[in-house]
Amino acid sequence: MSQDGCLVKILVNGEPQEVGLNVSVDGLLVSLGYGGKAVAVAVNRDFVPRSSYPQTRIQEGDEIEILAPMQGG
């Protein structure tokens, strides 16, 4: 997934992770085990629509939220 083998440090749901530089949101979801699952994504507190996953590239220091359906009141 990484273009030049470099790793960048990011936060996924508040937990530190290292991923390949310029990996797409698509690629990130697959590598974290969320591929094909019912989730929605925000990068740095902004919503990223599913249609934008391929062209949205993860950068050093990005804060990613991956949210799933849950019980609520």
Partner: peptide
Amino acid sequence: ITVSLRRQNAAGGGGEGFW
């Protein structure tokens, strides 16, 4: 019915069961 969105481990199946 009301529902919410929360962080969930991919290993735990995400929110698939509930959904």
